[in-house]
Design a protein around this nucleic acid. Structure first.
Lengths: 352, 352
DNA sequence: CTGAAAGCGCTAACAG
DNA sequence: CTGTTAGCGCTTTCAG
């Protein structure tokens, strides 16, 4: 027992941390030299460097990350928050799109030397004021999201979607919803579907608003009647209910575009329950990142919102802003990708 | 232009941070008083306190989180890492179980005042040495996971599953896989299924090993032949392929237990493709957190591994260790929950 | 009731 | 080539 125990009552006194000064004392060198040896800076002989490294390792020295951050003036830490999700602050990972965006953001950030903390959806100040965040990614903000203003007011750069465009300190990456919907609808029309219906959730995200507007515009251009069903929120339950409602009342559409993220096999099953064959009676396109779409029969045509590409573009923008002070351009547009599969191909029309 | 601009070349010089000393100067008080006023400590008149708060707000003062952390000796930051996932360091959020565990861990941590950083699955030192982590949650470590040893060697407490039991500084929360499998198999037997088959992934997590062993023991006790199919990895593709393989060769089982997480509607569809009716020809139980199980017809019986309960127990243990130095008990067992639905009820046997 | 001063652990000027 | 010194921004004894 050579170490003084501070609090006799505590079951496990925290192991005495080895500090830089301890290594300095042990090697008979100064803090400076040890620091330089360990970080690879300065001009030291390789012999000294090696001896220091060896001693440090033997003593179990671990640099204190907080002290380094204070010195460096930044923590290389970013926040990640979803604007709003289904009224539940933590359910956002249940959406395959958001899960992928989250994972890809964390991945790209780590590659660039930044760690990412997960914040609750619809977060208020309380959760992030105590954190040394260099920047925050706000995924799918709702219109005029308060968190964006709060962050900007705190001097924290925000990376989000197009809805933050124009505010200083705010940068955006987005997908082109209008082009995406046109591509889907044109594809369906090409396959002979003249009365496509749209299933959209009531959530007020940028993509949903734009998608709905694009659908309406497309119908208007062709003098077609709109057919929109709203699912009461995100998740499979509401979407299936909305689907059933549509199928039991009124004229059947000849194609279905699901903008609301739902499980493709579940959608197929719901359609089958109503005696509908896909693609025989109804063509189907889902806006979804759900990989089960590949494994159903028929495989389901999906529109990918490219969460990985979005995340990469966003983090790269962030690094450029944080490290080179680049503020132009403020935004990037990422193209979506339509993966045409059997569910949206008229059986009589062979695939291109 | 009263503020001196440091680097004329930089497009946006970082806005001059307001520090504690600035507020002190402005109010004509000392740093001490301002600090006490703002943190609510010390014995100050309410008048002073209010005046300081007002000035601080007016000046846009935000305390520097890093400096506070350095002073406090801890960062209230924890790491979260999955032992290994499908060979892909970032795909883990695609598993509904892991996604829920991740979300619930972050949620409970935030409630307790800790922020959680996401680390890549199978992470090495490089990703976390620069972070001031007070503790790390290691979900589903593989056998003798190196990261656990590395963290413990660095003096960072680890919260994981039973496989870390016995190592000082390591704490665990786990579900009782054996009891879970017995409950499933007994339930199936009760419903008249005498030849249950098991579909398990090849991943070497604690739960999978234990589940497989429990299945074998259960079969052995009854003198039943085992029927195990291994899916080549996590994800829906491998599971569906494994299923098809099982269905095309040899005698059909009369019940199926999917320990490998797969989409319930997708599994149902695969079975239907082979002309099998659930539950008529085959009873089905999925170990899964996927909510689509509720919306299929028949609804699918699931065994929940209770990710929320596991996360809560783990984080509460962590807080107790970090803040009260409690080291006992080292582990907690959380019961699983079998949700019996139509897919595992013989049509002739009415539900209890 | 308030303020001066001492650090938390580290890195980077600047001397020697 | 190496060491002394001065902080990064904050909280907290401890005097006044």
């Amino acid at each position: 027992m050579t170490e003084p125990s501070r609090r006799p009552g505590q079951p496990s006194p925290p192991p005495v941390r080895v500090r830089l000064v301890d290594v300095a004392r042990e090697t008979g060198l100064s803090k400076t030299t040890v620091s330089a040896a360990l970080t690879g800076t300065g001009r030291l002989s390789e012999a000294v460097r090696e001896r220091v490294r060896e001693t440090a390792r033997a003593m179990g020295y671990r640099p204190n990350a907080t002290a380094r951050q204070l010195r460096a003036g930044r923590a290389r830490l970013i926040g990640y928050v979803v604007g709003e999700y289904a009224g539940e602050p933590w359910a956002f990972l249940e959406s395959p799109y958001v899960a992928r965006l989250t994972g890809a953001t964390a991945a790209t950030a780590i590659e660039r030397g930044y760690a990412m903390v997960l914040l609750p959806a619809g977060s208020l100040q309380n959760e992030w004021v105590e954190l040394p965040l260099d920047a925050v990614v706000v995924a799918d903000p709702v219109a005029d999201d308060r968190i964006v203003d709060d962050l900007l007011a705190a001097g924290i750069p925000v990376f989000s979607d197009r809805s933050v465009a124009g505010r200083p300190g705010a940068y955006w990456v987005d997908v082109d919803a209008e082009a995406a919907l046109r591509e889907i609808l044109d594809h369906l029309a090409e396959q002979g579907a003249g009365r496509p219906a749209l299933v959209a959730p009531v959530t007020d995200t940028r993509f949903n608003r734009d998608a709905l507007a694009a659908y309406r515009a497309w119908c208007a251009e062709r003098g077609l009647a709109e057919r929109v069903v709203r699912a009461e929120g995100a998740g499979n339950g509401p979407v299936v209910r909305a689907l059933e409602e549509m199928l039991t009342q009124g004229e059947l559409p000849d194609a279905l575009v699901l903008v609301a993220e739902a499980s493709p096999p579940l959608v197929l099953e719901a359609l089958r329950r109503h005696g509908l064959d896909v693609p025989g009676d109804l063509l189907l396109v889902c806006v979804s990142e759900d990989v089960t779409a590949l494994h159903t029969s028929p495989a389901v045509t999906t529109l990918s919102l490219r969460p990985r590409a979005v995340a990469q573009a966003g983090v790269e923008r962030m690094v450029a802003v944080l490290e080179q002070g680049m503020t132009e351009p403020a935004g990037t547009l990422v193209p979506t990708r339509l993966q045409v599969r059997a569910s949206s191909l008229r059986p009589s029309v062979p695939p291109a």
